[in-house]
């Protein structure tokens, strides 16, 4: 692991004058699973885009040596190439980096198998269900074995059952690979279930209003969702949000 990710007084104002993010400082330890939680339009997605280098900060900086392939990104939509098979989609990061076709294909198939899509390598996105498409998207994000995985409300559009299944799969993959996971969500319960740490942002412009540790050990089985510990952390978060609103 190449080190921690440090957000140093990060701020973003868009050219049209919208202040998306006021000032965010946080150290995220390598291999941690952190959620960014907040209402819609609080600049959560902007934080991810700043970390990814898709957007330049107005002030402050992201301190982390990003190299090619060291970062994975999962969007809210599966964002697949409709004309390419699942394997072709999953192999994209490798092929863009110039990996030989056969090697890229083999690794893509292995990545698909990891997310439970054995036998779907040749399927086109339109032949897959919404949940399966998201799995292809996860396989693509992980195929190059990134050190940091950025997730922008990836399961928000899925039904409750698919969503909790994918939450479990995501935690399993994280336990195996130990990437640094940064997960954006507006669901308190999803944040609690997944994360070791929850950063709560206020509404526009985004500002850090609470930094909550979730000490519950992994693996977290589905029983965790109804446990007193889960409730305690969820209450802590809701209180932080209420205090803010008051």
């Amino acid at each position: 692991m190449s080190g921690d990710l440090r957000l140093d007084r990060l701020a973003k104002t868009f050219p049209n004058g919208t202040a998306a993010l006021e000032e965010l400082s946080a150290d995220i330890a390598a291999g941690a699973f952190v959620s960014l939680l907040g209402p819609s339009g609080c600049g959560k997605s902007t934080v991810l885009r700043l970390i990814a280098g898709l957007e330049e900060p107005t002030r402050g900086r992201v301190d982390w040596p990003q190299t090619r392939g060291s970062l994975g990104f999962i969007f809210q939509e599966p964002t697949l190439m409709a004309w390419a098979s699942a394997a072709k989609n999953a192999a994209l990061p490798l092929e863009l980096a110039g990996a030989p076709r056969s090697e890229a294909h083999a690794r893509a198939c292995a990545a698909l198998a990891k997310v439970g899509l054995e036998g779907f390598a040749n399927a086109l996105p339109r032949e897959l269900s919404g949940g399966m498409r998201m799995r292809v998207s996860i396989a693509r994000a992980l195929v190059a074995e990134p050190e940091v995985l950025l997730m922008d409300e990836p399961f928000a559009a899925l039904d409750e059952f698919t969503r909790s299944k994918l939450n479990d799969d995501l935690l399993r993959l994280w336990a195996e690979r130990r990437f640094t996971g940064i997960f954006v969500t507006h669901s308190v319960f999803e944040a609690v279930y997944l994360s070791q740490r929850i950063l709560i942002l206020s509404g526009r412009p985004g500002r850090l209003i609470a930094d909550i540790e979730n000490p519950a050990p992994y693996p977290r089985a589905s029983g965790y969702r109804t446990s007193p510990e889960f409730n305690a952390t969820a209450r802590e978060i809701l209180k932080a949000l209420e205090d803010r609103a008051a």
Partner: peptide, 23 residues
Amino acid sequence: NLRDLFRLYRAGFRQTFLRLMIP
């Protein structure tokens, strides 16, 4: 989003053109 993804993986103009824009 796909365009961003190609940027993220540092695709060159040729790669972006042939693999994304044309299809």
